[in-house]
Design a protein around this nucleic acid. Structure first.
Lengths: 150, 150
DNA sequence: CTGATAATGAGAACCGTTATCAATATGCGG
DNA sequence: CCGCATATTGATAACGGTTCTCATTATCAG
């Protein structure tokens, strides 16, 4: 796996060490995929080893983010979610306010318009956040049950 | 002021009462303008009356949001900011990562493309968040001092 | 004026995240 | 394989922003 190599390189460059917990967290994270909240990740990690602490999970995800293997995302609701990022292109998100599903999309024309708008205000864009909140196909007609606040 | 009337109506409809603190918070909020963080608002309110509690300011802003006079915004960085919203049209934001300046903009073409993207994924959009982070004209050449994390 | 009830202030509680720190694990040099 | 320097861990305290609790105080209709 390329992720393993990238993490190794990062650890070595910083003079850091390997650890059982670090490898477990990475394995669970990459093995799950999607946009995992730290809370969900902790639960999954602990089902494999209940003694892993929350601090270790947070620390490990920060490491993965530093070496470009994971990207932290802050959707509405407070907690941070991480998505796997090994060599993936830029994209934005559609979030279902009923079931919480998160869909990725990329639209070059929107990006171009964003850059143009920024330029017209004298801004040089460094990054952006575009999130569309709504209801996915399955939830369109279904009653709203669990609320993901828009 | 229309805001006063709207707040009165809202209070009456819910059987709520007026209070010195409520009026002070509203007055300071509308008198300041911009995208005020609750922390900044508390400071300004307290310079007029140091005994107003944080809870009261939070509660009052929630009221103003409920009756459509203020919109809460969560830019990167954790705290909630409120912007006055009396009859204002939808818009998005440019945020300077160096000085924290927040500029509003509206772009109909981006909105259209957003709706189209959502539709192509089967989503019905309820709301969206578009934030462009970068450096404003003044900060383009200036060294980065205070960091507003992008 | 009075009573019913809403609003307040102070501080505790809360939630997600980070810091602290003693105990433990890693892994290089030998 | 050993021992040691040092990175890592887990438990828990601390943190920042926000909300809750609750006894006290203010509002306002009658």
């Amino acid at each position: 796996m390329a992720a393993r190599a990238a993490l190794d390189t990062h650890l070595e460059r910083l003079g850091l060490k390997h650890s059982r917990q670090r490898e477990l967290v990475a394995e669970v994270f990459f093995g799950t995929g999607g946009h995992l909240s730290v809370e969900e990740l902790i639960q999954r990690v602990r089902s494999a080893d209940p003694r892993v602490s929350v601090a270790t999970v947070y620390r490990t995800m920060k490491l993965l983010a530093e070496c470009g293997l994971a990207v932290p995302r802050q959707f509405d609701g407070g907690q941070t979610r991480y998505e796997p990022a090994a060599g993936r292109a830029h994209h934005d998100h559609l979030i279902c306010t009923a079931c919480g599903e998160i869909v990725e999309f990329a639209n070059e024309r929107i990006e171009v318009l964003q850059a143009r708008v920024a330029q017209s205000h004298g801004f040089e864009v460094e990054s952006h956040k575009l999130e569309l909140y709504g209801r996915c196909t399955r939830c369109r007609r279904a009653p709203r049950l669990a609320g993901v606040r828009p």
